[in-house]
Computed example of a mutant assay.
Amino acid sequence: MWLQIGDFVFAAIRLNLAAVIACLPLVAILVLAIEPVRAFPTLIVAAWLSSPGLAACFAAFRDAPGFSAGPGCHEDLSGSTAGAARFWASGDVSIARPFARAYRRLFARSLSVSALPAGLALLLAVDAAWLASTDTLHALVPAMIVAISICMLDWVIGLVFVTELAMGSWWQIVKAAAVCAVRKWYLSIVTLVVLALLAAGVVHSPLPVLAIAASLALYLVWANCRWSALPVLRATIERR
Rank of each mutant, 00 (worst) to 15 (best):
V193R: 03
A128F: 07
L17Y: 13
S80Y: 04
T42N: 11
A60H: 10
P206A: 06
I5R: 04
A129V: 13
S78V: 02
C57I: 11
V37T: 12
V203E: 15
G168R: 01
E238M: 03
P25G: 13
P36A: 12
A84I: 08
Y219P: 00
K184C: 14
F8V: 02
G79M: 03
A118W: 08
A177Q: 00
L230E: 11
L210S: 06
D127I: 15
A69Y: 11
P41W: 02
A102T: 01
A46P: 07
A213G: 15
I150H: 00
A56Y: 14
V202C: 08
S149G: 08
V203G: 05
T236Q: 03
S133C: 06
W48Q: 05
I5M: 09
C180P: 06
M1Y: 13
V182Y: 03
L116C: 10
P52V: 09
V31C: 11
G53P: 04
T136K: 05
V221W: 06
A100H: 05
W227D: 03
L218Q: 10
Y186S: 08
L216K: 01
V162T: 09
V113Y: 10
C23T: 14
I29G: 14
F40G: 11
A178P: 00
L198I: 07
A96V: 12
W222V: 06
S78L: 06
V190D: 06
A18G: 00
E164W: 07
V156W: 11
R105D: 07
L15I: 07
A178Y: 08
S68W: 03
L195H: 01
P98I: 04
A115L: 15
L131W: 15
H138P: 12
A33G: 03
S215R: 08
A46S: 11
A214Q: 14
G53Y: 14
I212Y: 07
S133Y: 04
F67R: 05
G83C: 05
L216R: 02
